[in-house]
């Protein structure tokens, strides 16, 4: 994949970048490359937050990321860590194998709603039941993005998708799955929260949550899960700004951000 030449000078009469104070830059744990994500998609923000947390915890050199099948299928290219690409839904099983065989590694999965809540439902359920010491980033945008906008288990009631063209009828196609609330009930889960990306304040909260989910693993407390509400402007047929509003106005009422399980050891730290 082509990598852009680093920009060292903005314009001839501007000071060189080296002479300026760096106040914001790419985290070391995020690879210097282009991504294939659509304009306005919040995967990029979530990648960045994961990268910042890995940097802040100083674990980049012993982290192994597990990518899903879905829009984040290439996530292993976008993190500057070792990484694998799992079969659809099997990331928690693969992460289990990695963590059990190499317990000194920091292992995270990055999965979408189709991957985690539909085809991989059993794998995440039992990883939680066993209390695997892994971190799970669960990106919920209520739709199958990569295959072109089909109905997901998290699709909102009435929502039109390419496979629910008359809107999701809960009597025929079931109701949205609140997987994080479900998994929070399990003793093996140390941390289970839902966050969002629709505003700067929410993004900051998301980062704190991702950090706690990794800290749960580092402390050996069990599985840490952060569900992040994310946009899909392409398949929602909305512009990026409307997409953020769609999260706020349509997704948040169905999937309210909140803490469903926080291990006592993680509360102390706050």
């Amino acid at each position: 994949m082509a990598i852009a030449e680093p920009i060292t000078q903005i314009a001839p009469d501007e000071p060189k970048l080296e002479e300026m104070e760096i106040i914001y830059q790419r985290p070391e744990a995020v690879a210097e490359t282009y991504t294939h994500y659509c304009p306005g998609c919040t995967h990029g923000i979530i990648h960045r937050l994961v990268g910042e947390v890995i940097d802040e915890l100083g674990v980049r050199e012993r982290t192994i990321g597990v990518s899903p099948v879905g829009c984040a299928v290439f996530a292993y290219r976008y993190f500057n860590t070792d990484g694998v690409e799992a079969a659809h839904g099997r990331a928690p099983a693969m992460a289990t194998g990695i963590k059990r065989a190499a317990p000194d590694k920091v292992v995270f999965t990055y999965q979408g709603d189709g991957d985690l809540a539909s085809i991989g439902g059993n794998e995440i359920l039992h990883a939680c039941a066993r209390g695997e010491n892994i971190t799970v980033i669960f990106v919920n945008n209520a739709v199958y993005g990569m295959t072109g906008g089909q109905m997901a288990p998290t699709t909102l009631p009435g929502m039109v998708t390419t496979s629910s063209p008359y809107g999701r009828d809960v009597k025929l196609q079931g109701a949205p799955i609140h997987i994080t609330e479900m998994l929070a009930m399990m003793p093996g889960v140390a941390y289970a929260v839902r966050r969002s990306t629709h505003s700067v304040a929410e993004i900051r909260k998301t980062k704190k949550a991702i950090k706690l989910a990794f800290e749960a693993q580092l402390k050996g407390l069990g599985l840490g899960l952060v569900e992040v509400l994310s946009t899909c402007p392409t398949n929602w047929r909305l512009d990026p700004n409307e997409s953020l509003n769609f999260i706020r106005d349509n997704m948040v009422p169905i999937y309210p951000p909140g803490d469903f399980k926080v291990h006592d050891e993680l509360k102390k730290r706050r």
Partner: peptide, 21 residues
């Protein structure tokens, strides 16, 4: 490491994961 998996689907993917390290 011994682990009884939730299914054969999971066990082969656990083998896959362990093999990658």
């Amino acid at each position: 490491t011994f682990l009884q998996a939730e299914s054969e689907l999971a066990s082969i993917n656990m083998v896959y994961g362990a093999a990658t390290v």
